[in-house]
């Protein structure tokens, strides 16, 4: 049931991509996303495909898991393809009726847009699949540290994020348990109109809120009992330090970015 939903969908495996510093992966994902919108030419897509293919291969995550993320944006993908396909002005390829027609530019735009969106999703899922949520927040905290100078509470934000992430699976499990318990008492969550269904949620929501508050309270006490007092002077058990492989990864990003820009410029000249 609810347990099947994967959030923070980390896929454990022993790969180079998994071992990379989370900051590298954050920056890398950003670079890849930006690169997708840099080029207009066909050859740029080849470069992006090769790069993505290599990363997927290196990550040792089955492709099935990457494609899972696409399901969620399928409707959006469909919309963008349909609108681009039928509503772009240009040379008519296939008239349907009235203003509705498939143009050469439309076809081109639709295909490119679809590829971009798919790569966007796959690119970000590689990051979440190969990085635990805790690593990710650690990376964010360290990466955003310069913002501390302008009084952004970076540590507190990162701590809140990691606590929130940590609570997601717990609360999901709790919801699952309470739902089952109420179903065992004959509760019905599937039938009835909207208002009835909303009312049927009360037996889940009340116990869930109570347990969430109880857990939050316990956690706060456990943290205070261990002398937690914010980020001031706090050290890390596993501090993030760039290793050789991280530097190589940064180098790869630069090469990739240069390739994309280069390919794009060459194809524009031709």
């Amino acid at each position: 049931m609810i347990r099947d939903i994967t959030i923070g969908q980390y896929y454990p495996a022993d790969s180079v991509i998994h071992k990379l510093d989370p900051r590298v992966k954050l920056v890398g994902t950003m670079v890849f996303l930006v690169s997708l919108f840099l080029f207009q030419s066909f050859s740029g897509y080849i470069a992006a495909t090769v790069f993505l293919g290599c990363v997927i291969k290196l990550s040792k995550v089955p492709l099935k898991f990457m494609l899972k993320g696409l399901k969620a944006v399928f409707i959006l993908l469909l919309f963008s393809v349909v609108f681009n396909l039928f509503l772009t002005d240009g040379e008519t390829l296939l008239p349907i009726f009235g203003k509705l027609r498939i143009t050469k530019e439309g076809l081109r735009l639709a295909v490119f847009m679809a590829i971009r969106l798919v790569y966007l999703i796959i690119g970000t899922s590689i990051m979440t699949l190969t990085t635990t949520p805790n690593d990710l927040t650690d990376g964010l905290e360290k990466g955003l540290r310069p913002l501390k100078k302008i009084r952004v509470p970076v540590h507190e934000i990162a701590m809140m994020m990691s606590i929130a992430l940590r609570f997601i699976p717990i609360l999901l499990e709790e919801t699952d348990k309470i739902m089952k318990a109420q179903m065992a008492r004959g509760a019905d969550f599937e039938s009835g109109n909207f208002i009835q269904r909303a009312r049927n949620m009360i037996p889940i929501l009340v116990p869930l809120f109570i347990s969430a508050f109880r857990r939050a309270n316990d956690l706060a006490m456990a943290m205070e009992a261990r002398c937690y007092h914010g980020g001031e002077g706090r050290t890390k058990m596993k501090p993030l330090i760039y290793k050789t492989r991280d530097k190589i990864a940064y180098g790869t990003f630069v090469i990739y970015l240069l390739t994309v820009i280069g390919v794009n410029m060459v194809s524009r000249v031709l």
């Binding site: 089952k180 318990a181 179903m183 008492r185 004959g186 037996p203 116990p207 109570i210």
Partner: peptide
């Protein structure tokens, strides 16, 4: 589910009504 009653672990965590009596009436 009416014939096979299941009491979960820590069943008190599923209490939700305003008073004990109405909670027992839920089933």
């Amino acid at each position: 589910r009416g014939k096979v009653g299941l009491v979960f672990q820590y069943p008190e965590h599923q209490l939700f009504e305003v008073d004990v009596f109405s909670d027992v009436c839920f089933g």
